[in-house]
């Protein structure tokens, strides 16, 4: 599937152990990742899985205990302090809580990385104005961060991150503090930036929805280890590991909640919508055709340009013959069907 493009970031056997006074915490263990130019790479995991530590290893805000991080062919551990700072100008980062300078105006915030890079003030201001236009906040140039909404703050942070023309943009839970609508608009902006400027984006999140929305590739991290990597489609359609299934089925919440009170022994299937028309009532038709109801345990679908995308989990009737008929019916409708062994109970 993956086309041979330039490797942007290569993470090899990275481990990170935090040594405290009383206990040591192994935050990361044997992480291997290859991120290519132009990808939007999602790194998803529950809180405490080590994803924030991992993203900080990519720009050496955290120095890995073991292993190497190679960015554009350069081993970060081999760089001097000054070279590392130069390198960081190529690896921008945005944060969950925006981390803007509260005592500076929006425009001066965007000038900040340019000042650090040693640019002339006038040139920096010119560039900052262009960037404000890109993120659609030109009229807020003179405002202070405290006067902005969360979404606007993140836009300023994105403009600031882009100021030095970075090749990589790291997003650490960049949408976690935002409401769903704002999240969507920020993700759209990130996608736009990725397409227009070819910036490789790495997105850390605990929300599957974010990954589904814009990522091309995804790595699932669980307990400091990589559980699964692949294209979003691969992982979403056929999650192999427990951690992946947990995230894919429940959108990040604990599994098992829904089915707990239901009778055990019933068969559950997961169906994935990819190419069906949104206007076709597939499940309704199936129920009518088989003359038995199926219980929808989970449904997470949306209409993207007239095509249904997403997934459902159905609990099939006790009658084996009817259940088989339903599966056959769904397969006929070109849906991915997967039997779930232990979903209920």
């Amino acid at each position: 599937m993956r086309t041979e493009t330039e490797t942007m970031i290569q993470v090899k056997d990275v481990g990170k152990t935090f040594i405290g006074k009383e206990n040591t915490v192994e935050a990361l263990k044997g992480i291997n990742l290859d991120i290519h130019k132009g990808e939007i790479y999602g790194i998803i995991g529950m809180s405490g899985a080590g994803k924030s530590t991992l993203v900080r290893c990519l720009n050496f805000l955290e120095k890995p205990t073991t292993g190497t991080v190679v960015v554009e062919g350069k081993d970060l551990a081999a760089l001097s302090g000054k070279e590392l700072r130069q390198m960081r100008m190529q690896i921008a980062m945005i944060f969950q809580h925006f981390n803007l300078l509260m005592q500076r105006t929006v425009l001066d915030n965007i000038c900040f990385p340019l000042e650090i890079a040693g640019q002339k003030k006038r040139k920096a201001r010119q560039r900052a104005k262009e960037l404000l236009e890109i993120v659609g906040l030109s009229e807020k140039a003179g405002a202070y961060p405290a006067q902005l909404s969360g979404g606007q703050k993140q836009r300023v942070a994105i403009a600031r991150a882009l100021a030095t023309n970075p090749k990589i943009l790291l997003c650490d839970e960049a949408t976690s503090a935002l409401d769903p609508t704002t999240t969507k608009s920020i993700l759209a902006l990130l996608k736009d930036i990725n397409e227009k400027y070819g910036i490789t984006i790495i997105i850390i999140t605990h929300e599957m929805a974010v990954v589904q929305e814009i990522c091309t590739h995804v790595a699932i991290i669980d307990g400091g280890c990589l559980a699964e990597t692949g294209t979003v489609e691969e992982v979403f359609t056929r999650p192999r590991t427990r951690a992946a299934k947990k995230l894919v089925f429940q959108g990040g919440t604990e599994s098992g909640e829904i089915g707990r009170n239901l009778a055990t022994g019933k068969r559950c299937i997961r169906i994935v919508f990819k190419e069906n028309s949104s206007f076709e009532p597939v499940i309704g038709n199936m129920v009518l055709a088989c003359k038995e109801p199926a219980n929808i345990l989970l449904a997470d679908t949306k209409d993207i340009g007239g095509v249904a995308h997403g997934q459902m989990i159905l609990q099939l009737p006790e009658d084996g013959a009817v259940a088989e008929k339903m599966i056959a019916y769904l397969k006929e409708r070109k849906l991915e069907v997967e039997e779930l062994e232990h979903y209920v109970g």
Partner: peptide
């Protein structure tokens, strides 16, 4: 001063003096 803002500056390649 918010540690996050300091981290942001570090991520931009700011040195200690800056």
């Amino acid at each position: 001063v918010d540690k996050g803002v300091i981290e942001a500056a570090q991520s931009m390649g700011a040195g200690r003096a800056a």
